[in-house]
Nucleic acid binder design. Structure first.
Lengths: 300, 300
DNA sequence: CAACCTGATAGGCAAGGCCTATCGGGATGG
DNA sequence: CCATCCCGATAGGCCTTGCCTATCAGGTTG
């Protein structure tokens, strides 16, 4: 029971002539004769009444031919859809992004991505690292932008750019007097994000445990944290791309003595079949951001 | 591009497991692996992401799978329809019948045909011999009941029963005095049907050209002819099965001296693929009518 | 570390799709 | 009336391909 046989059937029904139908199908006339006879045997139904003058579909054939046409049309639809889908750089691309990166990075890369990969339909999804990894595992995301290393063979990752951290200080803070701030000097009054944000762990690792509000404040977003800093409740580390936003809030920024920072990576399942799409996305983001993060930091 | 491949695809999508899908399809697991990989190459699209833990459809696959389901469903519909159609004794059977036979024969055979061939959907079509043959040629009829021989190899025919003619006389006609009427005696005032009715030619052949109204009367139906006879305008020959109707109109019937009659045949295209259905129909009609026509004539 | 599970791969067999060449039988035409 | 043509069926052979069993590779589990 081959699909071609159905095409043969339609051709013979259309032309009423084995020879011409065979020509239209690109096969020889005996092929059509044999295949159609086989089809008739398999279906247990005579499909055509052969006559010296003409080949006429039987009434049974006419009852079937609608379904045959529909089946062939569906298969053609499959082929057409596959042709559209066969470009790995086209179609949906569900990209997870961590919250401390999304609002600052997305506006920068959306246009370049659309320009470089016009057929790629980017669908950003903002969540914390572990959630993003779970969604990657569940095939609910195609790739994710993270700021942590991912080990194991389950995922493949591509470093895109290094993003330096900056010390974020209230305008009246004593450390604003310095050109460069040492990470350890922030430990006294550093504020951190809630559990689950990789920036929280990175900040604590660089500065040490906060003495003041660190234990009680559970800022769910960098935006909240910046407001707290701007209001003078403490200091924090911010990623370079957030520099502009922080300054707009009146926060004073300073480079860090040990140049602490993070590496933004694109991560996807090792078995992800559209590796080409992932790498292309990574390429565009990397090209746009390499240097930009550092420049943003230096503009302080 | 084989249909089975689509079934394999659906099975793997359903089970998320090559081994179980293979079992469901009744093939080995390597078969599925190979065939699906081929399908992926042919479509140019990765359909599944293989992982040690799970086999997950790609987003491309999810876009295609609706069409795949539809295509497979259509093919299944073809198979199901073919199973229903594969009985040659089932389905429409378009049966042509000449007008001098139809109103008398049909009421007798309709019930027996339905009883003997309950799945056969009889569609009677009343027309004159030549028109019926044209419609047979055009595949617009499956078979026809005629009262003439059909020569050539184009058609195959099966004699069903012999139908004697009877002399039909007005009540006051001189010939009513005889027990048996000679065909030639009717010649003087015999009335015949219009051109195209085989009964016209058969009557003229038996009795000779009509002297009286024969030239001007163009009765389109046996019913008209009988009314004319009943009204005393002339005589005619009627087929045996019309005896009851004629007597109800007050017409006097007499057997013919030379037992002139006609043979009713079932005729179909020699290439007609449902020969079995035609022969079965002929069998039922023959069984019902053999003897009946003669009995009707003798009851006069 | 051994056993097991799962999908991929290799090799071989048999079915079957397709080809060319030819047949058979009816229509056509000089 | 015979030669020719047309058209579908048939025969024989080639080669693809679908399927099998056996095995591999890599990961998980007891």
């Amino acid at each position: 029971m081959n699909l071609k046989d159905f095409r043969y059937l339609l051709a013979v029904a259309e032309y009423g002539h084995f020879g011409r139908a065979a020509q239209a199908c690109g096969v020889s006339q005996p092929t059509l004769s044999v295949q159609l006879r086989k089809l008739e045997e398999q279906l247990g139904v005579a499909l055509f009444e052969r006559d010296r003058k003409a080949v006429v579909p039987t009434s049974a054939c006419e009852r079937l031919i609608g379904h045959v046409r529909a089946a062939v049309a569906e298969v053609d639809a499959i082929l057409a859809a596959a042709r559209d889908l066969c470009d790995p750089l086209a179609g949906r691309f569900r990209l997870g992004i961590i919250p401390t990166l999304a609002p600052y990075l997305l506006p920068l890369v959306f246009a370049p991505l659309h320009e470089a990969l016009p057929t790629l339909l980017l669908e950003p999804w903002e969540d914390q690292t572990l959630t993003l990894l779970d969604r990657l595992r569940a095939h609910e995301l195609d790739a994710a932008l993270l700021a942590t290393e991912v080990d194991g063979s389950e995922f493949t990752s591509q470093p895109l750019f290094d993003e330096p951290f900056l010390a974020a200080l209230p305008p009246e803070h004593p450390l604003t007097a310095r050109e460069v701030v040492a990470e350890a000097d922030l430990a006294q009054d550093v504020l951190v994000l809630a559990d689950g944000h990789c920036l929280r762990e990175q900040t604590l690792a660089a500065c040490g445990q906060s003495g003041a509000l660190g234990g009680t404040l559970r800022a769910a977003s960098l935006s909240t944290l910046l407001s707290m800093v701007a209001a003078g409740y403490g200091t924090t580390l911010i990623p370079g791309l957030a520099a502009g936003t922080a300054q707009d809030m009146g926060i004073v920024l300073r480079p860090l003595h040990e140049c602490t920072g993070r590496t933004v990576r694109l991560v996807w399942r090792s078995s992800f079949p559209r590796r080409a799409a992932a790498e292309a996305v990574g390429q565009v983001i990397g090209d746009r951001l390499r240097g930009f993060a550092k420049a943003a930091a230096h503009r302080v």
